[in-house]
Computed example of a mutant assay.
Amino acid sequence: MKKQLLLLAMILLPLVASAHDIEVKNADGVTIYYNYINDGTELQVTFCGGNYQYQGNVAIPEEVTYMNRTRKVTSIESSAFAGCSGLTSVTIGNSVTSIGDYAFEGCYGLTSITIPNSVTSIGGFAFSGCFGLTSVTIGSGVTSIGDNAFDGCYGLTSITIPNSVTTIGNYVFYCCFGLTSITIPNSVTTIGNYAFYCCFGLTSITIPNSVTSIGNYAFDRVDLTTVVSLIENPFVIEGKSSSYSAFNVNTFNNATLYVPVGTIDKYKATNGWKDFAYIVEGTPTGIKVIENTQKKNATVYDLNGVRLSEPKKGINIINGQKVVMK
Rank of each mutant, 00 (worst) to 15 (best):
L133E: 03
E105K: 09
G100M: 01
S213V: 04
N233R: 13
F200C: 05
M325V: 10
I168P: 03
I317G: 11
T270Y: 00
N209I: 07
N209Q: 08
L6K: 15
I315N: 02
L7H: 12
Y154M: 01
T225G: 12
I205G: 03
G178V: 01
L156F: 03
W273T: 05
L12D: 05
T283E: 15
D220H: 12
L6W: 11
I32C: 04
V24R: 10
Q53G: 07
N51C: 09
D28N: 13
K296A: 14
T183M: 09
N26Y: 09
V64T: 01
M325L: 15
S158K: 07
L156Q: 03
I207E: 07
I207S: 06
K326D: 09
T120R: 08
N250R: 14
P260T: 07
Y108V: 04
P116Q: 05
T263S: 13
N233A: 14
T120G: 07
D265N: 13
L202E: 02
S187C: 08
E310S: 15
C84D: 04
S128V: 01
E42V: 03
S75H: 07
D302G: 00
N170Q: 12
T212I: 13
V323T: 09
L308A: 02
T263H: 08
M10S: 13
V289I: 15
V188T: 06
G146P: 07
N253D: 15
A82E: 13
D39N: 12
E238I: 08
Q321Y: 12
E23Q: 15
P234M: 11
V227W: 02
V261W: 06
A195D: 06
I191V: 07
V73G: 00
F125K: 10
I60E: 05
V16K: 06
L202R: 01
I205S: 03
A19F: 03
S144C: 07
A80H: 06
F173D: 01
F219S: 01
V96P: 02
I290G: 11
T203M: 09
L5Q: 12
T31I: 09
T285K: 14
A218P: 02
A298D: 04
S121E: 14
S89A: 08
V90A: 00
G262W: 11
E62D: 13
